[in-house]
Write a protein that binds this DNA or RNA. Structure first.
Length: 477
DNA sequence: TGAAATGTTGGGGCG
DNA sequence: ACGCCCCAACATTTC
């Protein structure tokens, strides 16, 4: 009887989990392990919202695995010695995991695999997170794609592999090693700011499928037309589930193809394609992060190294106002409050808020990326990096530098009836629709700390300032 | 997955 | 009838 470790990381599911399936196929006894080692992810340790999600996702995974027969072993501390200790305690000689693609983690995992193999341990890694491995997709010239459309023509056309069913039972190790209580990881906040998160989300594999089926039963039909409207609730809400691997892109692709074949849902084909195309952007983001590992900190386009951002000291109070949803620009503040309250922001509003921060406030995009990293339940290094570099205009396939959103026009266009603004800025609820969209000077009675602020920047003049700044680096390299 | 400035067109009022 | 002006409405250009 042989025993193997399955090292869970961000593949917190039992269905279509290649590492788990392979380990179960090749060994009789399984030791599922999760190791909390946030320092090894530096400088991108999971943020507060992300750790909140992780707590509940691990809770459910451990319940599921216990039900199948093998309890999840939770440990804290440096990964390699911890794995060695679990190997020694269980007599396991093999370990299985699904790959991660962040620079710090690929480096760590490569080192761990080498060390374990040198010690005679069979270490196997799998693709559980992407439709295609980043090194499998290249242009005709052999270089990584930098533009989405040709990338997706290539990566999106690959055949779908068969899904792997979840194990029906798992035999635990003869000697079950010690496990740290989940509470000891202190993933949840000490003070109870997480009520909004709890009201908004159900982490875990079951929650992921509930959200998926809700989406495919309803919103996907109007996804293409309605997903841009923040009050329409027409998005899939799957991003955090995807980040933690509670569901994988291959499963979503298969689910979309099944929906396509259903005669009960006319017109779904184009809708399903629009949705899977967004999964494609997630693929593209991971592809770019793998091939350009400095991009979480550095702009992909080198001329942006010399971009005249405002200094930290100059921007300090503006950054704080942006973070707290007190810029005086209604749609921006609504979005930032949605983020703070629910750990999530509608994608259209992410673009508006990010454009405002980088272009109207002229604050380096890295500060926005860091704030999103700490507050989003779907914080994902690849997606976050792509999104911020796209908005700032310094990334791959980025918005051109001169594309500066007018947050008032965006608000009028995408929240015409003001429902999203009313929901997140209740103190402005009494105004007419026109007044709702438009920033205004605070009235004398509004000058208290709690009232809605006057705009912290003039939109027209800051737009000109941004164009001047971008002109400085135009053509430079 | 923009916005603003500038250019063009065509209908209608009017002398 | 005709030219002229005004100005939406739309199209193109520029950032």
């Amino acid at each position: 009887m042989t025993t193997a470790i399955v090292w869970f990381r961000r593949d917190l599911r039992t269905a279509d989990n290649p590492a788990l399936s392979a380990a179960c196929a090749e060994h009789q006894r399984i030791v599922p392990v999760y190791i909390d080692a946030p320092d090894e992810e530096a400088p991108w340790q999971p943020g507060a919202a992300s750790r909140w999600w992780l707590h509940y996702s691990l809770l459910q995974l451990s319940e599921t695995l216990a039900g199948l027969g093998a309890p999840l072993i939770i440990r804290q501390g440096a990964t390699l010695p911890t794995l060695r200790a679990v190997l020694a305690a269980t007599g396991a000689r093999a370990i299985y995991w699904n790959r991660l693609y962040e620079p710090a983690l690929t480096a760590r995992d490569t080192e761990i695999k080498q060390q374990l193999r040198d010690a005679g341990i069979a270490a196997h890694s799998f693709n559980g997170a992407l439709l295609a491995e980043p090194w499998e997709i290249a242009t005709g010239g052999g270089t990584p794609y930098r533009v989405f459309t040709p990338f997706w023509r290539n990566a999106g056309a690959r055949p779908c592999r068969a899904l792997l069913p979840p194990p029906t039972q798992i035999k635990a190790a003869a000697r079950i090693p010690d496990s740290t209580p989940l509470q000891a990881l202190a993933l949840r906040p000490e003070i109870g700011w997480d009520s909004g998160l709890r009201a908004s989300w159900t982490p875990g594999e079951r929650g992921a499928w509930a959200e998926t089926e809700t989406f495919f039963a309803g919103n996907i039909a109007r996804y293409r037309d309605a997903r841009d409207f923040p009050d329409a609730a027409a998005t899939s809400r799957l991003s955090p589930h995807l980040h933690f691997g509670e569901i994988g892109p291959m499963q979503l692709l298969a689910r979309a193809q099944r929906a396509n074949n259903s005669a009960l849902t006319p017109g779904l084909s184009a809708a399903a394609e629009a949705f899977i195309r967004q999964v494609g952007w997630r693929e593209f983001a991971h592809h770019l992060l793998f091939h350009f590992p400095t991009t979480p900190e550095q702009p992909l386009q080198p001329q942006f190294d010399h971009f005249p951002w405002r200094s930290r000291a100059e921007a300090r109070t503006d950054l704080a106002a942006w973070q707290r949803g007190r810029t005086g620009i209604p749609i921006v503040d609504a979005g930032m409050r949605e983020l703070w309250h629910t750990g999530w922001m509608h994608n259209r509003v992410r673009m508006i808020a990010a454009s405002f921060m980088t272009k109207n406030l002229l604050i380096p995009w890295q500060h926005g990326a860091r704030w999103f990293w700490d507050t989003l339940v779907d914080a994902n290094l690849a997606n976050n990096t792509l999104g911020w570099q796209w908005v700032a205009g310094c990334g791959a396939d980025a918005a051109p530098y001169f594309r500066i959103f007018n947050p008032i026009l965006q608000s009028q266009k995408f929240d015409a009836d003001g429902a999203y603004l009313r929901r997140w800025l209740p103190e402005r609820g009494g105004r007419s629709i026109a007044a709702l969209h438009t920033p205004s000077a605070a009235t004398p009675s509004e000058l208290q700390q709690t009232a809605y602020p006057s705009p912290i920047v003039d939109l027209a003049r800051s737009r000109e300032r941004a164009l001047t700044a971008y002109a400085q680096i135009k053509g430079a390299s």
